[in-house]
Write a protein that binds this DNA or RNA. Structure first.
Length: 464
RNA sequence: GGUCCCUUCGUCUAUCGGUUAGGACAGCUGGUUUUCAUCCUGCAAAGGGGGGUUCGAUUCCCCCAGGGACCGCCA
């Protein structure tokens, strides 16, 4: 067989969600593992619902997480004439037929089937229609003559052999009454024309595969391999859908999840390689295989995403981290002034210890970013007269200090604890609030040192 | 309702007939720490149920139960 070629084929009828991203990831990884190519096809034949903004969002999302397609972007709508040609071919050879049943008629049958609790399949009424019975005033749809006898087996690379009675596949429509092709036809023709060797997609397409295989066979095309990966479920156990809230990449990006962390999380959702949890992109390409894909659906777990992100925050270099933070703040918060960047970078060493997301880092670095302290009003109430006195004494003593570091600062604090008969909290908390506006935050010495002599005294004196 | 798929700790998973059923996240202890964290100890936590096959089943087979997907002139 020629080089492995996979594709991801979303429809731009909504934002790409995290489930789609994982499918794309698996397709991409598989092709790269095999030194093959990965293609992106936009299935935009639903003119009503397809939007350019969604198409752009899809491409942007994939790029964000590190996936780029090989070759030209394939736009399905530009190929519909090829799809129609195939439909006419099928028609000519007697593998498809025109169906004149009205929508009302079909709806009625469906309704009655439902009432009687019987399974509905189209009754094939027009399958053997003679010329003379053809109504003149109705625009027909074209249906595929699906096999009635026997059964078919799908040799799925993930699911194993799946057998189904052919009778359960109805004579599906391949051309609408306006002459446009439908999904099963278009996808099949495109996959063939794009020379796809492996169709890796969500489990929800499994039954479609039985329809598509029949087209391949009748057209005498090479059958690609199929792999249907289990779907990602919500916490409630339902299929992730476009209507589900909070599941696009942007939703994760804006709370400060980094692409590599999400990529790593998604990789391990439904796939495993021994006990390995952390994979660089290179490692994931090296180890990815279809055998490692599980058969059961998996649930999205935010705490795992967070902890993966935390891992990446702690393990990437400070240069990389600061770049992420700069980009993140510019995009979702406010641009960090250039003169503050170095200061934040120097503070990363303690800032990253208490962060699961870039947003956490931003929040804890606010006291550096803004010259003006914005106080948490509840915390501000903790600054009573006694606290002010402590702050004032601290300020005086620190004023004389030549060097600002933990060794010089610590004795001052300890002294205050003793003279005011309090504990560390009694001294540290007022100082932290005065300096950062909040009782939560980095260690007090870290704050003071990162702020520097002048700024520290300025802020302390302001509150007394 | 029909067809198909799935079922190991709360979650993601390892195990490819013989293990004290392993790891990770979350949870809970304890320790380090000058708040909160980080870091380090430790603990608790799982094979849906019933039949087979086998010397031996989480693992193979069957049945049941539960869950899911599909059943559009959407993709």
């Amino acid at each position: 067989m020629s080089n492995v070629a996979t594709r991801f084929a979303p429809s731009p009828t909504g934002a790409l969600h995290i489930g789609g991203v994982r499918t794309a990831l698996f397709c991409w990884l598989y092709s790269k593992n095999k030194k093959g190519t990965f293609h992106l096809r936009i299935e935009d034949t639903d003119k009503e619902r397809s939007k350019d903004e969604h198409k752009d969002q899809i491409i942007k999302s994939l790029k964000w997480i590190g996936i780029e397609h090989d070759g030209e972007l394939y736009i399905q709508s530009t190929k519909i004439n090829d799809h129609i040609d195939v439909a006419n071919d099928l028609l000519k050879n007697g593998h498809a037929y025109k169906c004149y049943c009205s929508t009302e008629e079909i709806e009625d049958q469906k309704k009655r089937a439902k009432q009687k609790k019987l399974p509905y399949t189209y009754n094939r009424k027009c399958r053997e229609l003679s010329e003379s019975d053809v109504p003149k005033d109705i625009k027909p749809v074209v249906r595929f003559k699906s096999k009635i006898e026997g059964s078919s087996i799908l040799k799925d690379l993930v699911q194993g052999d799946v057998e189904i009675d052919n009778i359960t596949i109805e004579d599906f429509i391949i051309l609408r009454n306006d002459g446009t092709p439908t999904y099963n036809l278009s996808a099949t023709v495109d996959d063939h024309q794009m020379n796809m060797t492996h169709i890796i997609r969500g489990d929800d397409h499994k039954i479609n595969t039985f329809k598509q295989i029949q087209i391949y066979l009748l057209m005498k095309w090479n059958l690609p391999y199929f792999a249907h990966i289990p779907l990602i479920h919500t916490l409630e156990g339902k299929k992730l859908s476009k209507r589900d809230n909070a599941s696009t990449l942007d939703d994760y990006s804006k709370i400060g999840i980094m692409p590599d962390a999400l990529r790593n999380y998604l990789l391990r959702l439904g796939w495993s390689y021994k006990d390995k949890e952390i994979f660089t992109i290179k490692e994931s390409i090296e180890h990815f295989n279809l055998e490692g894909i599980g058969k059961s659906p998996s649930k999205l777990d935010m705490s795992r995403i967070l902890s993966m992100n935390e891992h990446y925050i702690k393990s990437i270099s400070e240069d990389e981290l600061i770049n992420h933070i700069i980009k993140y703040c510019e995009l979702y918060k406010e641009k960090i002034p250039v003169e503050k960047v170095d200061k934040i970078k120097q503070s990363l060493i303690f800032l990253k210890n208490k962060a699961k997301t870039l947003e956490d880092i931003y929040n804890n670095a606010k006291y550096i970013i803004f010259d003006e302290v914005s106080f948490n009003q509840d915390d501000l109430k903790l600054i009573d007269d006694r606290a002010k006195k402590i702050i004032s004494e601290f300020s005086n003593k620190v004023n004389d200090l030549k060097v600002f570091n933990k060794e010089t600062l610590e004795p001052v604090v300890n002294n205050l604890i003793k003279t005011h008969e309090t504990n560390f909290k009694g001294v540290g908390q007022p100082l932290r609030i005065a300096l950062t506006g909040s009782k939560f935050g980095p260690g007090i010495y870290d704050i003071i040192i990162s702020l520097g002599n002048d700024e520290t005294l300025k802020r302390l004196n302001k509150i007394i």
